[in-house]
Structure formats: C-alpha cells, structure tokens
C-alpha cells in the first residue's frame, strides 16, 4: 500500500493505446463490431484538474469504466493511481472515487447519514477519521439540513451533493465525475463547482470530469481533453481550445421594441434575430470581453426588457473544432 501510494504520487492516470471494441447486434443475429475507444494515449498528473469532453457516444463512459476496472480493455494499457484497474480493483477502490450522474451509490430508502455510516465501514475508516471526514463534507457541501432525510425524498441537487460526498468519504486521490451537473439548476451547479475547487485546494485531489456544460470546464478545469469517435482530438488548455474555435457564450436579449440587427457591438457577433428583431442573439468570447460589457453596449442602443446568457454547449464546440480542423 505504501509503495503503491508513492507510485501514484506523480501520475493519476496513464493510458497508452487504449482500445475498446464492442460486438453489438445489428440486425437479427448479425453482429458487428463497434470501436468505442480507439488507441487512446494520455497521462494525467497527480493534482491536475481535467475536463474530458466529447459528443455523445464519443467513448467517454467507456473510458471511465476502463479506468475504474469495470470494463476490460480490448487492447492497450491503463494505470489508474499507479494500479492495474481490473487486476487490482479492490486496492484501487481505496484510492478512487467515482460519481456517476445516472447511478446512485446511496441507499435510497435510508437517511443520507446512514449511507455515510455504511460507506465508512465499507472503506474501513477509523472512528476518528469517519467523524472528521463526514463533518468536513457535511459542512462544505451543506448537507446538514437533509442528513436525516431518506435519499429517495431528496431533490436532484441535494442528491448530487450527497453523491459527491459519498464518493469523497474515503478521501480518494482521484475523483472521476461523469456528468455531475446534468439537470441541476444554476445555483446548485455553482455550489458544486465551488466545493470541488475547495476540495482540490485543500487535499490536492485529482479531478477528471466529463460534461456537456462548458461552464463546468471553464470554471473547474485547467486542461481539456477532447475525444471524437474514441480518439483524442485535442489536449491542452481551455484558452487554447477557445483560440482554435472560440468557446463563446451567447447573450440573448429581449427588447422593448423591435430593432434592426445589433451589428458592430465590440467583441460580439450578431447570430440572429427573432420576432422581427424583438429577440436578438449575440455571441461573445469570454477571453475578450464580459457579458456585462456586451450588455452595456447593447443597452446604449436599445431598451432591454429581459436577458439570458447561454453557456456554450460542448456539442457545439466539438462541431466547430471539427469544422476548423477541416474534417
């Protein structure tokens, strides 16, 4: 245990030529082979915070299952926290935490607090460690008010915070989050992001998250991995990704009266108008300007009734990256 944990001190994830093929039933008894992950090679250092993004079906979930030892690779090698996931699954379970957006680690008919008591036993935490860690997570994730509530009665946002605490109870070195903010309201998303930043700052936890929300990536991740059809299409900073394609947000304004297209707003591009100019959409680059600046420029010209800011969608970014790459 001691030697292995020192080995995981430098790299959290080491993947080389990782390939996963599935046989799927196509029509009747005919079967065809689908390659979900195709020769993936990447390294994630300890303490990094990485966004793992790609279109639906790009192979993200398959990769996570191979990292956790749930799926056996068809070819290539995986090391997670310095361990071979399938062969050393039980050892890995002590160092890895995973939050699946769609499957719960909590006991649905038990109060949240009881799930943590069981998980502390599952991970053989000492009484002192259990007390300290539970108290820390309850405080920082603000779980106190529904700790005695059965999990099935929690709201989605409450449950997701509960899930994150469950995955972190045993203080894993690597936390993998599969779509952690899907379906959450703006406030819940914000709270969760702030918590993850704080957890990382306090314990140096390595973060790997898949998401469809570029807001998650821009606030949480210093590095972005983009997969396309099982292959690594981009590896670098978000700024670099934005430079390639422009990870733009969109300001949507509803006007008091129909107006001509709002062209020429600094650092913003007019995307389109609806209702004869009553609703207009302007894209802007976070790196160059702010939503407030665009709004004030617009307000100088017309009266704004209502507004919203649309986060850039990963699918959209992916589409544009392929377009830019001439694929």
């Amino acid at each position: 245990m001691t030697t292995a944990s020192s080995a995981s001190g430098t790299t959290a994830i080491e993947v080389a030529g990782l390939t996963r093929r599935f046989r799927v039933r196509s029509r009747g008894f005919a079967r065809k082979e689908v390659t979900a992950v195709d020769g993936l090679t990447l390294t994630v250092g300890a303490g990094e915070s990485v966004g793992y993004i790609g279109a639906n079906g790009a192979g993200k979930s398959t990769t996570i299952k191979m990292l956790a030892g749930i799926l056996v690779p068809s070819a290539g090698t995986v090391r997670t926290c310095g361990l071979e996931p399938v062969r050393q699954r039980r050892e890995l379970a002590r160092r890895l935490g995973v939050v699946f957006g769609q499957r719960s680690q909590l006991w649905w008919d038990l109060p949240l607090a009881e799930s943590y008591r069981i998980l502390a036993a599952v991970h053989s935490l000492s009484p002192q460690r259990e007390r300290e860690r539970t108290a820390e997570l309850v405080e920082r994730l603000e779980l106190g008010e529904f700790l005695a509530t059965p999990v099935r009665q929690l709201s989605l946002g409450q449950r997701m915070r509960g899930e994150v605490a469950a995955a972190l109870l045993h203080s894993p070195a690597l936390l993998v989050l599969d779509e952690p903010t899907i379906g959450l309201d703006v406030l819940s998303k914000q709270r969760l992001r702030e918590f993850l930043l704080a957890e990382r700052a306090a314990h140096g936890t390595t973060l790997l998250l898949t998401t469809h929300d570029m807001g998650d990536v821009s606030r949480l991740c210093e590095r972005v991995l983009l997969v396309d059809r099982g292959r690594l299409a981009y590896d670098g900073s978000l700024a670099g990704l934005s430079k390639t394609v422009g990870a733009r947000r969109v300001l949507v304004v509803d006007l008091a009266a129909p107006a001509p297209d709002l062209l020429g707003v600094p650092h913003a591009e007019h995307l389109g108008s609806e209702g004869g100019g009553l609703r207009q959409r302007l894209a802007f680059d976070d790196a160059a300007t702010t939503a407030a600046a665009v709004l004030s420029a617009v307000s100088e010209r017309v009266e704004v009734r209502d507004l919203s800011v649309e986060e850039p969608d990963v699918e959209d970014v992916v589409r544009r990256i392929y377009a830019a790459g001439g694929r």
Partner: peptide, 13 residues
C-alpha cells in the same frame, strides 16, 4: 440500474 458498477468502486469482492 447500474448498481453493479457501484460495487466495483468498493474494496470487497
């Protein structure tokens, strides 16, 4: 329901 995947994340057989 994917509950078995959750079992993989715990250090018991």
């Amino acid at each position: 329901a994917g509950t078995l995947d959750v079992f993989y994340l715990r250090p018991q057989p």
